[in-house]
Every structure is written in C-alpha cells, then in structure tokens.
Design a protein around this nucleic acid. Sequence first.
DNA 1: GAGCACTGC
Length: 766
Amino acid sequence: MSTTELEQLEQRLAHCLLCDRAPLQRRLAGLRRRLRGNRPIDRGLTAVAAEVAASEARRAQRQQALPMPEYPLDLPVVEHREAIAAALTGHQVVIVCGETGSGKTTQLPKICLELGRGVDGLIGHTQPRRIAARSLAARIAEELHTEVGSQVGFKVRFSDRVGADSLIKVMTDGILLAETRSDPQLLAYDTLIIDEAHERSLNVDFLLGYIKRLLAQRPELKVIVTSATIDPERFSRHFDDAPIIEVSGRTYPVEVRYRPLAGEDEDARERDRGQAILDAVDELERAGPGDILVFLPGERDIRETSERLRKHHPPHTEILPLYGRLSVQQQQQVFRPHSGRRIVLATNVAETSLTVPGIRYVVDTGLARISRYSYRTKVQRLPVEPVSQASANQRAGRCGRVAPGICIRLYSEEDYDQRPAFTDPEIRRTSLASVILQMLQLGLGDIEDFPFIDPPDPRYVRDGFRLLHELQAIDDDSRLTDTGRQLARLPLDVRLGRMLVAAHAEGSLDEVLVIVSALTVPDPRLRPLEAQQAADEAQAPFRDEQSDFVGFLRLWRFYREQERHLTRRKLQRLCERHYLSWVRLREWKDIHGQLLGLVRELDLQLNSEPADHAAIHRALLTGLLGNLAFKGEGQEYTGARGIKLHIFPGSGLFRKPPKWIMAAELVETGRQYARTVARVEPQWAEHLAPHLVKRSWRDAHWEQRRGRAVADEQVSLYGLVLVPARRVDYSQVDPVAARELFIRGALVRGEYRTVPDWRFISTTGP
DNA sequence: GAGCACTGC
C-alpha cells in the first residue's frame, strides 16, 4: 500500500517546482529503501507528501499568476513573435539577433511568459552591466503593469530584488555564473536568456560553455542567446546548429565615407589625424544640422582634439568630452538638452555602455585602446589598436538611430577590408587564473576539454596555473589547496583574495580589508584636466611616502570619520572640495561591507590591535610576489624576469623611490608603470615564498675558526636577488660535499681544533 | 611626469 503512495508522490513531482524535484526525489528514494528493509516510513511519507503538496501549490500559483503580455505594435521583434515562439517550442536553444532598437531585450522575456515559461522555474535574463539589469527590470515590470520585486525582479551585486512570486529575474551574467556554485544545474530556472552575447565577455564565454554541458542534463531547459547581427552563426554552431532568428532593427541607413589620412608613415599620419578630424567635422557641418560623435582612442587624444576644435569653431558649437574616468555628473552632460550643435568626443564608452542620444554624424578614427595581458611579462598592456570591422560598424550605427546618418572613417576602405572581423574575445586577452580557479572548484575537468566557443590560448592557461601556484592556491600537482578553496569563494581577483587570507595570518585583516576593497573599485581620487594641481593639493593629506596602500587607509579613515557627523549633502560637498568621487567612495564602502561578511564566513579573523607597516605589507606582498621590483641606477626598477618598470607619477613614492617596492598593478601605457606601490623588505619575500625562491651557493670552504663548512648563499625570486650573499652552514645544504671539506680542510691539513658537529660528517645527511 | 571599458557568492 505504501508502495502505491510512493509511486503516486513520484508522479506528482512533475507538477512541482524544478528546484524541488531533485531533493524530493532523493527523499522518496530513501523512503523506498527503508520500505525494502521493512522499516516504518509513515512519518517520513507524511512529511514528504506535505512538501510535495506545498511545491505543487506554489507552482499552481505561478501558473495562475502568469500575465498575458501585450506587445507594443511598433517594435520589429513583435513581427517575429510567432517565429520565435515556434523555434523555442521545437528547439532547446535559439539564437536571436538584431540591433539595438529591435526590442528584443524587452520583448523576449514576455514571449517566454506567453509560452508558459517561468512557471516551473524562473526566466533568468542576463545583462553585461548592473545599470542595464536594473533598468531592464524596471521596463519589463512597467510593460507587465507590475512592480519591480513582484513578478519581475532583478539581482545585481549589492541588491537582490527578486520576490517569491517573481517569474522573471534580470541579473548580471556574473551573478548567474556565481549561482552555479550553489545550484550547479541552475534548477532555479526553466528558461535562460543570455543577452548581448556578442560582447563576448569572459563571463558570457564561461556561461555559454557551462550551459552547453548543462543542456543534456536539463532537457526541459530553454535557452535564448541574443547577439547583435555580427556572426550569429558562431553561437549557432556552438549549440549544435541552433536556429537563428533575425530581427531587423528600427534604424536608418548610414552613409559611410572613407577619408584616409595622407601620411606615408605612422608619425605623419599621427600628425595628420588632428587635422583630419577638423576636416571631417567641417564636412559634416556642411551636410546639415545635428550632433556629431567622434570616436578617439584615449583621454589624451580627447583633450588635444578638444583644444583644436575650440580654436577652430565658432562659439555656438558645444564640445563635450566623454570617457570612463569622468565623474558621473560630467558624463551626464551628454543627456542634457541643448540648442546649437554639439560635438561629443568619446572613447569606447560610447560604443557599448553609454548611448549618446540624438547623434546624426559619426567621425571614426578607427582606433581604440584595447586591454591585453601579456602572459610573458605578466603586464597588462593598453596598446592603441585598429578596431575590428564589427566595432567599426557598431560605431557607424550610432548615428542611424533618429534619422539617416553619415559616418566618416579616417581610414581607407582597403584598410577596413583588411581588419579582423571581430574584436578578440576577452578570454583570448586576459589572465585566466580566476577562471581556472572557478573551474577547479566546480570540478569541471580539464580546461582543454571544456566547450568554450573560442578555446583559450594554452600559454595563457599555463600562465594562469602558474599564478595559482605562486599564490599557493594549487599544489605542485595542480590540485586545489585549502587556500585555493577560500579564494574561490571570494568575489575578487585571485591576488587580492590571497592578500585577505594572508592578512588573517599576519594579524592585519582589518587594514588589508580596506585596502583590498579600494583596489577593486575605480580610484575615488579624481584629477580633472582643468584642476590637476588643485586636486593634488586637496588630496595631499591622503598621501603616504612609504606606501600608496596606506594612502588608501588614510582616505578611508578621513571619509568614514566625516561621514559620521555630516549630512549627505555636506558630505557630497566635502567630496567635491577634495576632488573625490562620492559614488566610488560609496562603492568602496559597499564592497568593504560585502567582503567583511565573506571573511567572517571563511573564519578569517579581524585583528583588534592596529597592525604595523610590516604586518600590513607582508600580507599584501603575499598576493604580489610577482610584482616585486628593485631600483637600479636612476628611476628605473627591475622587476620579475628582468622587466623594466617606473613608479607611476601619481604615486606618493614617486619623489623618493625606495630600493625595493611591490606594486598592485603593472600596466604598460606610455611606459611600463608600477601603479599603487609600497616600500618592502626583500627578506619578507624570502619568507613568504619558500615555494618560489631559488637558492644557490658559492665559495664553500672549511671555516677553521668555527669548525664547520660554510658557503655564501644567494636567494632570488624570479631572477631578483633578494639576498646577495649570506654565510650559511654548508652541511645543511650539501652534507656530502661538506664532509669532503671537513676531511680535506680539517683532518688532512690539521686545522681541526674544536669538537666537530658530527652531523657534518654523517653520510646520511641532516 | 599620467589611464580603454566592464564585472562577482
């Protein structure tokens, strides 16, 4: 009789929420075993039956609450509604591609609802950026006539507004990736929409590989991958020829004009570029009214161009710079209404994260600074490179959103044709240590076998393992250590995570937590072009001549102290006076709060007594062993593997450079710079890196006076000599050779006076 | 003597 009841309950699992099915199934299997062993199961059966009923009820409630979405008729995606619905019914994965303005982002989750998705589990919808996730949730909620937090929720770092009744959950792709740790089969979801996959961030690439493996285990899971119109076939192939549905964008034609620079060589073209921008702007002004967006590679180019344009143009033309390091208020200027013509000079921010409204014309230099990690020198480089065709097209598309546009490219059509079709995905240009660590933690097997869309370069993989070994996150056999498992739980760069673990041991976690948080946010100290000196003076109290890290501590104490007794308005004004970004300071505090919670979970202890310079910096150095450097003649430092470095001019140590430094970051821009640095003692590195230092000995001889064999020991780390020559007991190093010295030196020549330490002449060694 | 852009339990 109980057998039938068990069977009935098992059948009812199909009406439960996805996330409840597996655990309930396991409990039913346990009951079945008890039954076979003739043990009573009545109480267990009653409890499981209640939970099955509760889960069924929750699912039924979701089913009932399913809204009937309405669609705005003027969006292109709506015309394809039925095609998308049919593809999704027939296939596990569907690729939807279309430009911004097609409405795919807002309408896809509604189409999923209409198909009855979102009942068994959530419809998870990922975005690359936090702001996008928040505002998308707000828009979908509005279109479904509901509030954020009820049927539509979102989750980003620091805010989780997903409710028990939520059917749609918008989140950053990083959040979904993080959830694989606690929910490896992603059973909270019955549908996943991976949006903006063409951006090919590390998160998206990792997720698409993970999902590919998940599909077989989750046959009822549906996945939509969305992309701009570039290369949807690539995603389709990755998912075994998933159908592609193209949704046209609501955009206007853009006329592309090629105006290549005249110069013969790079220098001449460089000189010509400034003039070419002015010429292009003139040409566009003749074309008619409307705002102009100019894409430039960096801040300095924006400044130079801005000056030239100001001299060149009548006063009714407004010139606005736009780049990532500007304060939020300065960035908001582009959304301020205006009369007359506006020329926006922008970096790549305007290509992806920020949409400048009302642009009719684009001038594209065809250049961008691209971040590339050098696995050879371990330095992050920011070279100016020609952008890909996809990127150039994205830039051109920025002027066809309100009316037909014109895009002037300051390079030739042949140049364009020869460029790579796509920007290298992040996985091909970044340090892979974090990804490898996550893969080891999740037990995903060999990285070579993981179904990445683009497999990472084996040299980068080796370098990632090497860094994890440097940090003692893996042992000599590449197996995860306890430290590695702790690092995998910290939402931090592995080097920074390692500092926290070390700070626990050094008794400096209180201070290091503040420093590590500071290193994860953009520098809150602003330095506007027009007020560089004023900013430097206002921030002088936060400088420390020994350590930029201590500089962060000073700023932190100042801010936290002021925060206690100032109103928000006054605090913001104080920030302005000191050229500090209030937004970034708050982000720093938020991160600090989050990490504080995590270190407690990891049982890392905060020190109650203030830590000294050594305790703080030894902890930091544990994460930065590869970023140690030694000063030679002049201002030049030699770092690991012989690389040449200079202290970044913004550092507090710039004027009085010490012999030994460590750097939080090595970046190659104009030069190879060590950024955020501190004075260190080389002996610290010797003690912190027993697994890395190399020792060599010379001049081994019998020392008559002390009655023992000695030698000069040299200790080095990555080719940097930490200890040039230290007299050591040679029997500890090479007992056999030491014994020879003893025999030749002491016995044969009769120099043996004191009682020998018999270990010297033992043949088995120490 | 000075920096492209994002993001996480």
